[in-house]
Design a protein around this nucleic acid. Structure first.
Length: 589
RNA sequence: GCGCCAAUAGCUCAGUUGGAUAGAGCAACAGCCUUCUAAGCUGUGGGUCAGAGGUUCGAAUCCUCUUUGGCGUACCA
């Protein structure tokens, strides 16, 4: 589609310049008016490409309407005009492109490329590291993590589809005062409770004691002091504390891994804060020696960021312990050694924009020329319909709980439709629907924007939702299966795309052609929502098409073949695009 | 206070090199199942694109100011 657009643009440009030259004796005024803009007409029947001609009115001393007319006439005299129709609509020159050749090319591509259809090599040879999730080991995942995970997985898949070599990494935040809080509460109140004895998932068990600590803290001012003491003991490597730490970390990580397994999240490599905070400290001390940083009288180490209009920032506390920023410096350095990258993308909430601005600059000052290759993919907060999620008020939406609720609702729907036997494994199908619902809901909003997560809406099976998309795929499979069962064979027939002359068919072909461009754009903008929007458009159009027009019973075998070919193309786009958004493809639902 | 970001239908969101009558979904109402899954399709109503200026042939889109909201501005993460 892109090539077709470029071709028409070039031709119209040539004609415009030739016209200008004849009329004015020079094509300078045309060029001065700027490059020809190209857009899409508001309605499909008006054509596929539109050239607004307002800008040339002055230079050509003529109305845009008149220019459009003249261009249309001039174009009709050209012998090298590509197939298609030239239209005028007031001040616009519109082109209705010929989709029959396009359809045949696309069909060949779909058949030969299969699951690679729509991907490209724009980022071939590029090594991109994507950091996301980064859980704490003191509590289970919540809704905010789910957006982070969905984005991280999706961006990774999108970059891969653009040819990049992608390395997914996570940083486990397993160290610090917040970790000690859950440990201390456990030591005090647990009586040796374990995931096995309690039947609780490990991360939820540890989270329970983190919550208990907060309650205790309110009643007893010593609580925080004891936690601080425990942190000191941890840093000294006190064996009792270390043992507890390792045990509870294992519980949490086991629990998190169960959640990841359900939600389709995985990593190529983990980093642990308990390792990287030491590396960060070394880097800061080295930077101090080299004069990049300076030391205050109390022993704390600072960087002056006035060169980028920011304040001073602490890198190492006066007692020598490290901060959030310190360990992120260590992590970045370690990663660049482990897997030298062309880009590192941090998928982290927008509230940390300032942090990353500082981090990137500190690395630059430390002499890392690759600091230029670091990007913060800053995504907005997830709010609830009645406001912010607040742990204090217990309005945090737990990830496991949410996923289970969605699964139950999907299950209920399958039962209500009496489709248990048809779908086979009801539990597995319900989980796939729940995951599709969740990922689509979280990815359909532009990443940078805050969003409202409406649980009731997310689980709805009507409208702009994951299950609606999954349903389209399942319907196509069902239809094709039915065709086979009825002994319909069209494989030997040639595909005559000129038979696809309905408005909807033209539109579907163009959308199939557009898919590859959307994949490229999504990578350029780090925006999976572009794919979500595209998928929904395709779904709606397809839904209407197959509702209004029979496929298997289209009549003439050649037409049946043509429509099945079209459906095959749409199906492949669905399958490929679902993967980029973490929506499981279901053959039956 | 300062910095960054946002504001589009009752609600949730699309709408980017500035272009044609600002679009979807949900919710409401009204239709459509002896026919490829009705988890669907069709239709109706619903807008001062926060407000005011400016640039432009043309502004939801660019600039300025104002209002409202979010986030940040920690020897927290």
């Amino acid at each position: 589609m892109q090539q077709i657009r470029e071709l028409w643009k070039k031709i119209v440009e040539e004609e415009l310049e030739a016209y200008g030259l004849e009329l004015l004796g020079s094509n300078e005024p045309i060029r001065a008016a700027g490059e020809l803009t190209l857009q899409k007409p508001p309605k499909p029947e008006m054509g596929d490409i539109a050239f607004p001609l307002f800008t040339y009115a002055k230079a050509l001393k003529s109305s845009p309407q008149q220019i459009a007319q003249t261009l249309k006439e001039r174009l009709s005299k050209r012998s090298d005009l590509p197939k298609g129709e030239v239209l005028t609509a007031g001040p616009y020159l519109n082109i209705k492109v010929d989709v029959t050749q396009l359809a045949e090319r696309l069909y060949r591509e779909v058949l030969s490329e299969g699951e690679r259809f729509g991907s490209n090599q724009t980022l071939a040879g590029k090594r991109v590291m994507v950091e996301f999730s980064c859980p704490n080991t003191n509590k289970p995942l919540h809704l905010g993590h789910l957006r982070n995970d969905a984005l991280g997985e999706s961006i990774s898949a999108i970059l891969k589809a653009n040819g990049a070599e992608v390395h997914k990494v996570s940083l486990i935040n397993n160290r610090g005062i917040h970790i000690c809080k859950s440990m201390l509460a456990y030591q005090k109140f647990a009586n040796g409770e374990t995931p096995e004895s309690s039947g609780l998932k490990g991360d939820h068990l540890v989270g329970k004691y983190y919550v208990l600590f907060s309650q205790w803290e309110k009643e007893d001012p010593n609580a925080i002091l004891e936690a601080q003491e425990m942190l000191r003991q941890w840093e000294e490597g006190n064996p009792v504390v270390m043992e507890l730490w390792e045990k509870m970390n294992r519980w949490t990580i086991d629990g998190l891994n169960q959640t990841y397994a359900k939600t389709g999240v995985s990593f190529d490599r983990y980093y642990y804060e308990s390792d990287t905070y030491l590396q960060g400290r070394e880097a800061v001390l080295k930077g101090l020696k080299e004069g990049v940083f300076y030391k205050e009288a109390d022993g704390s180490i600072w960087i002056d960021l006035s060169d980028i209009n920011l304040d001073k920032k602490v890198l190492l506390r006066s007692d020598g312990t490290s901060l959030y920023l310190t360990q992120d410096i260590g992590t970045a350095l370690a990663r660049h050694v482990d897997w030298p990258f062309d880009a590192l993308i941090y998928v982290v909430a927008s509230e940390q924009q300032y942090h990353f601005k500082v981090l990137f600059h500190v690395l630059k000052r430390l002499g890392c020329d690759w600091a230029e290759d670091l990007h913060h993919l800053s995504y907005g907060m997830v709010n609830l319909p009645d406001g912010k999620m607040k742990s204090r008020e217990g309005t945090i939406v737990d990830a496991d709980n949410l996923f289970d609720q969605l699964t139950e609702l999907a299950k209920g729907e399958i039962k209500a439709k009496e489709r248990e036997d048809l779908v086979g494994d009801v539990q597995q199908t319900s989980e796939a629907i729940a995951l599709g619902a969740l990922n689509y809901y979280l990815l359909q909003t532009t990443p940078t924007k805050d969003m409202v997560f409406n649980p009731a809406e997310s689980i709805s099976f009507n409208g702009n939702t994951g299950p609606y998309l999954q349903y389209m795929g399942a319907r196509i499979i069902s239809m094709l299966r039915k065709g086979e069962e009825e002994g319909l064979t069209t494989e030997s027939l040639p595909f005559d795309s000129s038979l696809l002359s309905l408005q909807e068919e033209r539109e579907l072909i163009k959308l199939v052609a557009l898919y590859g461009e959307v994949v490229e754009e999504a990578a350029k903008e780090f925006n999976p929502a572009l794919i979500a929007t595209f998928l929904y458009d395709l779904s709606r159009l397809f839904s209407k098409y197959y509702h209004d027009h029979p496929i298997l019973k289209a009549g003439e075998p050649a037409l049946v073949k043509g429509r099945i070919a079209l459906v095959t193309m749409v199906l492949q786009v669905f399958k490929n695009a679902y993967k980029l958004l973490g929506i499981p493809f279901l053959e039956t639902m």
